[in-house]
Design a protein around this nucleic acid. Structure first.
Ligand SMILES: [Mn+2]
Ligand SMILES: [Mn+2]
Ligand SMILES: [Zn+2]
Ligand SMILES: [Zn+2]
Lengths: 145, 145
DNA sequence: TTCTAATTTAGAATTATTTTTATTTGAGAA
DNA sequence: TTCTCAAATAAAAATAATTCTAAATTAGAA
């Protein structure tokens, strides 16, 4: 934690208590929280915190490349403090997002028609699945019916 | 076009003039329009059409598996009448979405930890790139500066 | 300690999408 | 062809995520 704070103290990014709380919450967090999740959490320690602060901080961190915005849930943005290359799997029942830590880059060669039209800058795979918990719920439902 | 109409006439999906216009607009359309794009277009022929009709129709078609919702632009949903397996490339400058018609399924094996946790149901690759037009704009900008 | 630009807050505004409600209509039955 | 009514439409309100605004506060440089 000390590390995080030291890290940002430079880089023209004022370390306010609200920001430190957000950084602490995100550090090592693999739950892919939404802005609302973060807001709800930070509010416990800083009851007057506003959504604007959460969004401003997320934007600043995104611009610094410290977090990623995950576009996999059509309803809202999720944030990820793991900025190393990885992919995601979303449960089609509960929308939980899991990490898929595997490098597929060799496999993801684009067809030549696309290479002619686009300068490529990256890729990301969305996997879809049903998580353990939701599989269990489904089984229980079946039994009841 | 006649085909489309014949196709839906059955399947408890009332063919209204608005719906026919939407179907016509979507048929073979590879531009990945948003609900607003569709609304704007349909409005030309049916000036009183409402957003509710567009969204209702898109929802009905999605439920029938006739169109796909594309989650690649974090700002809004896009719709795709091509329901065969394919992937997308989005221009990071203008957000235009292009099709990547190639089967990567053999390459997209999930790590065993994930297979233990999820019953997988599908996948989709988002490629990111800069399209020809935006590359050109960038070059022109550089010259001016 | 002082100063100031950056940040915070509360609330309003905006944007995308969904829902509600009253009215109209497509298409099957008579 | 006419009747019937569940389904669909239009207009407007509601909701949810995100952004903006303006005034107050504050981190950190000097
Ligand atoms: Mn992740
Ligand atoms: Mn497509
Ligand atoms: Zn689940
Ligand atoms: Zn472009």
């Amino acid at each position: 934690m000390k590390k995080i704070i030291a890290k940002y103290r430079k880089r023209d990014f004022k370390l306010t208590p609200q920001r430190i709380a957000i950084l602490r919450y995100l550090d090592g967090n693999t739950s892919h929280p939404t802005a609302d999740d973060i807001f709800t959490q930070i509010k416990k320690a800083y009851p007057t915190v506003s959504f604007a602060t959460v969004y401003n901080t997320l934007l600043a961190l995104k611009e610094k490349g410290e977090i990623l915005e995950v576009t996999i849930d059509p309803e809202k943005k999720h944030y990820d403090s793991n900025v190393t290359t990885h992919h995601h799997i979303i449960c089609t029942e509960c929308n939980k997002i899991g990490d898929v830590i595997k490098d597929y880059s060799d496999a993801l060669r684009l067809p030549s028609e696309i290479l002619k039209e686009y300068k490529t800058v990256g890729n990301h795979i969305d996997f879809y699945g049903i998580c353990k918990e939701c599989q269990k719920e489904r089984r229980e439902l079946k039994i009841k019916n």
